[in-house]
Design a protein around this nucleic acid. Structure first.
Length: 200
DNA sequence: GACCAGGTCCTTG
DNA sequence: CAAGGACATGGT
């Protein structure tokens, strides 16, 4: 299945930016299209707030204003502040996180209010180059459609057991699944899913 | 105007 | 534990 998607789509760009930008974007894109996140990131850059350090120092209403276009803006501004506080208080800054083991980072991220499994894995995989596969609603929809009865909680280890142990494979796998599911695994047309399932 | 988008938390049964 | 609601803006 992974191989088929890779052949179908090839290398596709997915999540640009440094660790700070990925962490911020990971929260802003919750239940939200990426096209609505981009202007918010541009606003943050324009106002010098596109780093957790700056967000930690900024006032909440100021954050709310610049991320409004992503929806849930009050909730998300609060989550950004919570993440910034966690990174500052626990590690002393983003740079210090680079040497922390993945499992430990993940546990820390999950302890932050507003960061669940998908957001944590997005940060680890795309922000800190750790092999932690992102499982989202598209992944669940596609596998379900393919007749794979594993619950969402088991999909992560299932896919990770099949992936090559390279960070690029983890990054592309999620990107490919999203691209595929968006285009072909809508309500009706799910022919491809079963075909892929047959191929492992 | 209805419906959905790269979730997560809180409250109920 | 599963299900339902809240959070909110922007695009079909």
């Amino acid at each position: 299945m992974i191989g088929i998607l890779s052949r179908q789509f090839g290398e596709i760009p997915w999540w640009p930016g440094d660790a700070d930008e990925v962490m911020i974007g990971a929260i802003l894109t919750q239940q939200t299209r990426w096209e609505n996140v981009e202007p918010a990131l541009a606003n943050l850059k324009r106002t010098g707030l596109c780093s957790l350090e700056a967000i930690h120092a900024a006032q909440l209403p100021e954050i709310e204003n610049v991320v409004r276009c992503t929806g849930f803006y009050r909730v998300k501004a609060g989550r950004l502040k919570a993440l910034a506080a966690h990174v500052t208080n626990t590690y002393g800054g983003v740079a210090q996180m680079m040497l922390i083991p993945t499992d430990q980072l993940r546990i820390g991220l999950l302890s932050v209010t507003g960061i669940g499994e998908e957001t944590a894995d997005s940060i680890l995989c795309y922000g800190f180059s750790r092999p932690s596969l992102v499982i989202d609603s598209y992944t669940e929809r596609m596998t379900r459609c393919a007749g794979i009865t594993v619950p969402r909680s088991g999909l992560k280890s299932l896919f990770e057991g099949v992936l090559p142990p390279k960070i690029s494979a983890y990054r592309q796998a999620h990107a490919h699944i999203v691209e595929y599911a968006k285009r072909f695994c809508t309500k009706k047309r799910c022919e491809g899913c079963r075909i892929m399932a047959l191929n492992g």
